[in-house]
């Protein structure tokens, strides 16, 4: 054993992948050892980097050899229970939403315009499959920023959700952010996010936003459109008119 960290440990230190206590020791060593500082710098030199081409062929052969037999387990018989579980969770959440939908949410008083008092409930989270599937593989893929920002949303923490969703910036994030703003009684801020938003259900929430912002005529115009077409909010829209 030498008095310096092994070269591979040294090289891995800047990547931040070493166990914390090892990382701390290597860092401390590096500060005091000129030899290791130089070796680390040299090992990172592009001239000493092994050519990737040879590895590329070798790794490709390994992948094609392993890919076929081992991907069998990712078949429907295996996935089915996971999908069933996910589906039942979705139903449970939906039932929960229906349950809470009748909790009256106070709307801001608007002078002279009688609000329609459209019921506000949390729009169900509808994420791409990659963010909701249960991964059997040891390494879960990184969750999308939208999925992460929707965690506080699903827990009803609209303040945090609104701030995080504002940073994501996609139309979908804008939709959930607008719903959060409605729960925070900031309807007028929700309007620009919902106007022209193509996310399913955004017209219903736009009607709520108009209604709460005191723009009753616009709310009614949107409700008429919803009522004229089949969709999840049709019955409620027709009832409100």
């Amino acid at each position: 054993m030498t008095r310096c960290p092994p070269p591979d440990v040294l090289m891995a230190q800047p990547a931040g992948v070493l166990p914390p206590e090892v990382n701390a020791r290597v860092e401390a060593h590096l500060r005091s050892c000129a030899v290791c500082q130089v070796l680390l710098r040299d090992l990172q030199d592009p001239g000493l980097e092994p050519a990737a081409a040879e590895s590329q062929d070798r790794v490709w052969r390994r992948i094609t050899a392993e890919a076929r037999p081992r991907c069998k387990w990712l078949s429907w018989p295996v996935l089915l229970p996971a999908v069933a579980l996910a589906a039942s969770l979705v139903i449970a959440v939906a039932v929960g939403i229906q349950w809470t939908a009748h909790t009256p949410v106070p709307s801001p008083p608007v002078a002279q315009v009688k609000p329609l008092n459209l019921p506000l409930d949390r729009a169900a989270v509808n994420l791409p499959l990659s963010d909701s599937i249960l991964w059997r593989d040891a390494a879960p893929p990184p969750r999308s920023p939208l999925a992460q920002a929707l965690d506080p949303y699903s827990k009803g923490d609209y303040q945090t959700a609104e701030q995080q969703l504002a940073r994501v910036g996609s139309p979908e994030a804008g939709f959930y952010r607008a719903v959060s703003l409605l729960f925070l009684h900031r309807a007028s801020e929700a309007i620009p996010l919902l106007e022209g938003n193509k996310t399913a259900g955004s017209d219903w929430y736009l009607a709520i936003a108009y209604d709460r912002a005191g723009q009753r005529d616009r709310a009614i115009a949107v409700l008429k459109e919803i009522c004229a077409r089949p969709g999840p909010h049709r019955d409620r829209a027709c009832a409100a008119l």
């Binding site: 030498t2 008095r3 310096c4 960290p5 092994p6 440990v9 020791r25 060593h29 050892c33 030899v35």
Partner: peptide, 14 residues
């Protein structure tokens, strides 16, 4: 983790 061990003696002078 075993491969990350080394004989730790502070080296002041290379």
């Amino acid at each position: 983790r075993a491969e990350t061990q080394w004989d730790e003696q502070p080296i002041a002078d290379p």
